[in-house]
Simulated assay, not measured.
Amino acid sequence: MGCFVARGRWVCGAEHGACDPASQARRRRWDDTGGDDGARLRTGPKPGVRTMSIALHRVTDVAPPPHSRVAGAYPSTDLYDAYSIELPDEASGDPETLARFVFARSPAWIGGLTRIRDALVAGLGLKTARRLHRLGANGGERVGMFRIYERRPSEIVLGEDDKHLDFKLSVLCQPPGEAVARRRLIVSTAVHCHNRLGRAYIAVIAPFHRLILRSCLRHAARIGWPPRQPAG
């Protein structure tokens, strides 16, 4: 008997519980995706604050917060947007921790899109994601491929400068207030293009940018936000 899923748990039907290599690889792959099927295959809860409420998985378009450090970062913007998701009470409130979590655990298909993007822009002399990741691996101040520009208690500002455009990305923890009952994580992006190449690039990339950010935030909520650290 092979390995299979029953009632949301992985069942090993092999003798003495020794799965064949293909089954082991399939289990690891589905487990690591954090997707709906991956969640069904897990044998137990992973570290993190799982958000079962559909409301806590909902990503909404919002106006970029005027108090964010990316507001007014450029004299003009060719793209300026923001997306928001609720944070459960037990989740971390540290913006750098949350930023690293969101961008390090993006859905697998985003990596495929990034590789296609790199192949297309490398011939234009633009920075590739692979090159930017290497900078971080060599000790640069980065979150994934993004340079860290500024840290504040409730916000971290990331981004990059290139010959066609500059951009800044804010990951901001907004406390509850009159308009919202829960804390929210807001990711804002501001892009300033230098030339026609930049404007053409952002026109092509913008739909994917929106899809990727929304997917990353939903994915983070589904697999479980990092928990708050004990005080002291």
Rank of each mutant, 00 (worst) to 15 (best):
M1D: 13
C3S: 13
C3N: 12
V5G: 08
V5K: 05
A14V: 09
G17L: 05
A18G: 15
A22Y: 06
A22W: 13
A22S: 05
R29Y: 09
W30D: 06
D31C: 08
D32S: 15
T33V: 06
T33C: 03
G35I: 02
D36V: 11
D36T: 15
D37E: 14
A39S: 10
T43E: 15
G44L: 04
P47E: 11
G48I: 04
G48Q: 05
V49Y: 11
V49G: 08
V49R: 09
T51M: 10
T51W: 02
T51S: 11
A55T: 05
A55E: 10
L56R: 09
L56W: 07
H57K: 14
R58V: 06
V59D: 01
A63D: 14
A63H: 12
A63M: 14
A63Y: 12
P64N: 08
H67L: 13
S68G: 14
V70I: 15
V70M: 11
V70N: 01
A71V: 00
G72P: 10
G72D: 11
P75M: 07
S76W: 08
S76A: 15
T77M: 06
L79M: 04
D81G: 09
A82T: 05
Y83K: 06
Y83V: 09
S84V: 08
E86Y: 12
L87V: 07
E90C: 07
E90G: 12
E90L: 12
A91L: 15
A91C: 07
G93Y: 12
D94L: 03
P95N: 14
P95I: 03
E96N: 07
L98F: 00
F101I: 02
V102D: 05
V102E: 05
F103V: 13
P107T: 04
P107Y: 05
G112N: 07
L113M: 11
R115W: 10
I116P: 06
I116M: 10
R117C: 06
L120Y: 10
L124R: 08
G125T: 04
L126V: 06
K127I: 14
K127R: 13
K127G: 12
R130I: 11
R131Y: 10
L132V: 08
L132W: 00
R134C: 01
R134K: 03
A137S: 14
N138Q: 15
N138G: 09
N138Y: 09
R152I: 05
R152A: 13
R152P: 02
S154D: 11
V157W: 09
L158Y: 01
K163S: 02
L165T: 01
L165W: 01
D166Y: 04
K168P: 07
K168V: 13
K168M: 12
S170I: 07
Q174V: 13
Q174F: 04
Q174Y: 06
P176F: 09
P176G: 06
G177S: 10
G177A: 12
A179V: 08
R182Q: 11
R184H: 06
L185A: 08
L185N: 03
L185Q: 02
T189L: 13
T189V: 12
H192W: 15
H192C: 11
C193M: 01
H194E: 15
H194T: 04
N195E: 09
N195H: 03
L197P: 10
G198I: 02
I205E: 01
I205P: 00
A206S: 11
A206P: 00
R210M: 08
I212E: 01
R214S: 02
S215H: 03
C216P: 06
L217K: 06
L217R: 09
R222W: 07
R222D: 01
G224T: 00
G224L: 04
P230M: 06
G232Y: 00
